[in-house]
Design a protein around this nucleic acid. Structure first.
Length: 107
DNA sequence: GCCATGGCTAGTA
DNA sequence: GCCATGGCTAGTA
């Protein structure tokens, strides 16, 4: 068994987020084994989304908000999520009770 | 709104 | 040092 690096685990998890659902930075970090490593998720998305072809748009912050500035990709992210059926309220917040990915419950 | 957190890399020596 | 976080509090109303 070759040992996966933490970053490789993050990438594998991000890949598993299904269309129409979102995950949070902290959630992915926790699933990869380190609940405090939320920023690594941000780092990976920033650095590897293109190269690894990740569904980068399916990761939002803990409040269900898009973390990116609107002008820095946030608008694109919202458009992609809406095209998958994810809904935003008037304040731009996603209802995580409805749209959060729960791999343990939905398998 | 501040700042601790942590895995990783660019860039220097 | 960087980073697309998250948790916690001081300080106002």
């Amino acid at each position: 068994m070759t040992r996966q690096t933490f970053t490789e685990r993050l990438i594998g998890l991000i890949r598993r987020i299904p269309a129409g659902k979102v995950a949070t930075y902290g959630q992915i970090a926790a699933m990869a084994g380190n609940p405090r490593a939320a920023r690594q998720v941000a780092r990976v998305l920033h650095a590897c989304s293109q190269k690894e072809d990740l569904p980068w748009h399916r990761v939002v912050n803990r409040e269900g908000r898009i973390a990116l500035e609107t002008s820095a990709g946030g608008a694109e992210q919202k458009r992609l999520l809406e095209s998958e059926g994810v809904e935003f309220d008037l304040a731009g917040v996603i209802d995580l009770d409805v749209f959060l990915w729960r791999p343990d419950l939905l398998r």
